[in-house]
């Protein structure tokens, strides 16, 4: 009995020792990972579930993710039902009460954003993969990234008071960098750019820089292109004189290439929409630079 008591006592002592190690942060997407790295710097250890080339709508809830989530101090997610198909299982399987929604280690970026394309009135699955709370790809607007970065700074400061000054400095650096580049980016893109995309991934980017999305290759969100719809897209593309078709690199570009065959002057570009989606985009600012350069009128 005495040894048992000693065992319990030691166990309690070990469990109650506060850890001074770096904050262990898990994010659902690589864009969020990049933001946390920008603010947390060398005071955080960050991993993302979704790789840059994977569609965050359809990740599989691998048990190995539960293991990562079990050890996490903070879980940073997009919200707006983007991860609804897999994240709840991971949170439950992690047996980590901190990262439950509403828990001290839960951060849902979508709750700080004024979303676009929020459906009004009734919604139905006949409309495809609609998000009742609005389009979840908000981090592709650099200004939204600043809004989220500020909240991440607050969250990290709450969890690690000692380094709150460091987090604040990092945030200021990031916000200044974005603000100083916005005007330049707008100039590069120019006015009245018209594009075709596969999915409504770039809505926020287009909204920020005044780019017109003439047509989508998907007839409805999440629904693969049909022949009839493609004809419609070609007609619109010709009428509007669109010169650029963008395919998020987790989709198949075959259909876009077919459209390009019929529409003279239309170029197809396979683009990353997440950090690490291509080798030369290791960071969110570089992702914006990449998208801007693709958009540039040449």
């Amino acid at each position: 009995m005495k040894t048992f008591k000693i065992f319990i006592f030691t166990l309690c002592t070990i469990l109650s020792i506060p850890s001074y190690a770096k904050l262990n942060v898990i994010t659902t997407t690589t864009n969020l990972k990049s933001l946390v790295e920008r603010i947390g710097g060398d005071q955080v250890e960050v991993q993302s579930f979704c790789k840059g080339t994977q569609d965050p709508h359809y990740l599989e809830a691998k048990p190995s993710y539960m293991l990562k989530a079990a050890k996490a101090d903070l879980l940073v997610s997009i919200g707006l039902e983007l991860e609804v198909g897999w994240l709840p299982l991971i949170i439950r399987g992690s047996r980590n009460p901190k990262i439950q929604e509403g828990g001290s280690g839960s951060f849902v970026a979508g709750s700080f954003i004024e979303t676009l394309e929020k459906p009004t009135g009734t919604i139905s699955r006949a409309d495809g993969d609609v998000h009742p709370e609005g389009n979840p790809h908000f981090l592709l607007d650099p200004q939204n990234a600043v809004i989220v970065a500020e909240k991440i700074k607050d969250k990290l400061s709450d969890m690690d008071h000692e380094h709150s000054k460091y987090f604040l400095e990092n945030f200021k650096k990031f916000s200044n960098e974005i603000n100083s580049k916005l005007e330049q980016w707008q100039k590069q893109i120019g006015k009245n750019r018209k594009v075709i995309t596969y999915h409504k991934t770039l809505t926020y980017f287009f909204h920020r820089f005044g780019i017109k999305n003439i047509a989508l290759l998907e007839p409805k969100p999440g629904i693969p292109p049909s022949a009839g719809h493609i004809m419609e897209v070609m007609k619109n593309a010709k009428k509007e004189g669109v010169q650029l078709a963008l395919v998020e690199n987790y989709f198949d570009p075959t259909v876009a290439n077919r459209v390009a065959k019929d529409v003279t002057g239309l170029k197809v570009r396979l683009i990353p929409v997440s950090v690490e989606g291509e080798k030369d985009v290791p960071d969110i600012v570089q992702l914006y630079e990449k998208l801007v350069s693709v958009m540039e009128a040449k």
């Binding site: 790789k51 080339t53 994977q54 569609d55 599989e60 987790y250 989709f251 198949d252």
Partner: peptide, 9 residues
């Protein structure tokens, strides 16, 4: 197995 690139298909 589900490839990281093209894992949709």
């Amino acid at each position: 197995w589900r490839p990281v690139e093209g894992g949709k298909y």
